[in-house]
């Protein structure tokens, strides 16, 4: 199986070392010129046969395999399809074509603290978000103190979240998502939250996790960060996979691209 060109990978090539395999992923959106969301409009358009959409493929023919413990940097300009790809892998979008195979627990950190309830206190949100990630209440009982300690928000933990600053929310989100070592971790531009001190702390926690064999997909525009964290990388451009391979080669190519 070559790493450079992954388009020939088929599902039956999945091995024990495979953490993630994508085969021929395509994601199509219908860009309607005007949004039809009222019943009246819908029926008028239906009768007039005006319900037309512009098709837009945000991703097309994406195939690659990530082995266990690999740290893959996802590079690409704005609108290249990076976040869409992450959402397909996380299961938020169902791909129009192709299949995603994943092995183990996947923790998506696409936007820290999405899914928090603003009326709920910090502590209640820990349980809620834990349940979103699939952990039981009993399990969260054991972990809740670790989480609170890591966030350094002890004095605010019984305050409703609407009174939190965005940095505080991000801390809470980070602490919950990393309380258990997931098998696959998706990081979409999340290492740029919080103050410098917390950023250092969270990067250290992530690096510790990676040392113990967590597979990481890392989306960032910060090339230095990608160099520091990743051992492989891929470039997306207008929804297709340009290159996939060792970090140095790919980053060099990306730097060429954005010149």
């Amino acid at each position: 199986m070559s790493d450079k060109k992954g388009n020939d990978i088929k599902m039956n090539n999945v091995t024990k070392d495979t953490a993630l395999m994508l085969s021929d992923i395509g994601m199509r959106f219908n860009l309607s010129k005007e949004k039809v969301d009222s019943v009246k409009e819908y029926f008028i358009k239906l009768v007039k046969h005006e319900l037309k959409f512009d098709e837009f493929w945000a991703l097309r023919n994406i195939s690659f395999e990530v082995k266990k413990g690999e740290r893959v940097g996802i590079l690409g300009l704005n609108g290249a399809g990076k976040s869409t790809l992450m959402k397909v892998i996380a299961g938020v979008f169902r791909p129009t074509e192709g299949n995603v195979y994943k092995q183990g627990v996947l923790a998506p950190m696409i936007e820290l603290g999405a899914g928090f309830d603003m009326q709920y206190t910090g502590k209640e949100n820990i349980y809620l978000y834990g349940a979103v990630l699939g952990y039981s209440r009993k399990f969260m009982d054991e972990k809740v103190n670790d989480i609170i300690e890591f966030t350094e928000l002890k004095n605010f933990i019984d305050v409703p979240l609407k009174n939190y600053s965005s940095g505080m929310k991000a801390r809470l989100g980070f602490a919950i998502a990393t309380v258990v070592k997931p098998d696959i971790l998706i990081l979409d531009e999340v290492l740029s939250v919080g103050d410098a001190k917390f950023r250092k702390k969270s990067e250290k926690k992530l690096l510790d996790m990676m040392d113990t064999g967590t597979t990481v997909l890392f989306v960032s525009h910060n090339i230095e960060q990608v160099k520091r964290i990743c051992d492989k990388a891929l470039i997306l451009d207008h929804g297709s996979l340009v290159t996939y391979g060792d970090m140095e080669d790919v980053v060099a190519k990306y730097e060429e691209m954005i010149k």
């Binding site: 996380a90 938020v92 999405a114 899914g115 979103v132």
Partner: peptide
């Protein structure tokens, strides 16, 4: 908010 970010 939840539906857009995680699978549930």
């Amino acid at each position: 908010g939840m539906i857009k970010k995680v699978y549930v």
